[in-house]
Design a protein around this nucleic acid. Structure first.
Lengths: 148, 148
DNA sequence: TATTGTTATACTCTATAACTATA
DNA sequence: TATAGTTATAGAGTATAACAATA
């Protein structure tokens, strides 16, 4: 009790649990979307496009907090899967507008189902009230700390 | 409303928020412990040792869910900082028991403070009740999904 | 000259495999 | 021969920097 703060105090923090659980969660989600030819970042890009960020690739990069070159790679792969289209802006031919295809929306829906499956798995040991309260807390934090 | 599930549904999931917030949280924690010469995994190892997992390096590796070779590297660095000691088990000279030094406990305490600072930053926009409920939900999930 | 997208390159993190020493 | 730890190597993921096309 006269201890300085140790392991128990670290485990009590939000940041420690977010970090460790985030890694576990991402790993499980990745395992489920792998069969679709996707990584979690692909799902993130699909979601950003679906949310209406039909913007230029540079804008997407800053919204997702990744390097522009990564958007190129992700978009290349999604394009090969027929999930997105690139259309040159006729008013500024440097710009490429990314947009979801029907197949892209279908893939996104499959990602959502994968995420919901992982959710069920992760929160299986929680009561309904606990699940609700956790979900709300995370959404609130997400709205405050994440762009868009 | 006749839409298939899209971006909004993905953002509503626990796994999506855990993944994205976990990345943000880890990044902020990493920035704070960098000045101590540490990465988040160093803090994790210090915490595991403080929690009493004084075990062999191989046991540590499986407890933390990382490769044994990573424990070697982390322990090397912590030893250079004077934070851990390696003592050969006299009964089986292949085994090295890692243990925290006073400096290691001091470093761990500084990690805890860093984590608490990040917590305050992350949850600044939440009410006390929201913060409590989030913290409880995460700890509960952590106890169920994480080893040890 | 500045900006968008792309390509080339390098860096970080971590795992797998090969190796050493003890058992 | 099997195991703990170590070292060497390789792969994934992503960023930075150089480049091309357009403005």
């Amino acid at each position: 009790m006269n201890d300085v703060k140790g392991a128990a105090a670290l485990r009590a923090t939000v940041v420690f649990n977010l970090g460790t659980l985030g890694a576990v969660a991402s790993e499980r989600f990745a395992a489920r979307v792998e069969a679709l030819g996707l990584k979690p970042k692909h799902a993130g890009l699909l979601a950003a496009l679906d949310a209406g960020a039909a913007a230029s690739q540079l804008e997407l990069a800053s919204r997702l907090g990744v390097a522009p070159s990564l958007i190129v790679a992700l978009a290349d792969q999604l394009q090969e899967l027929g999930a997105v289209e690139r259309v040159r802006d006729p008013e500024d031919r440097r710009r490429q507008a990314l947009s979801l295809t029907a197949e892209g929306r279908r893939l996104l829906a499959r990602c959502v189902r994968a995420a919901e499956d992982v959710d069920a798995e992760l929160t299986a040991g929680l009561s309904e009230a606990q699940r609700t309260s956790l979900t709300r807390g995370l959404r609130l934090l997400g709205e405050q700390q994440l762009p868009g």
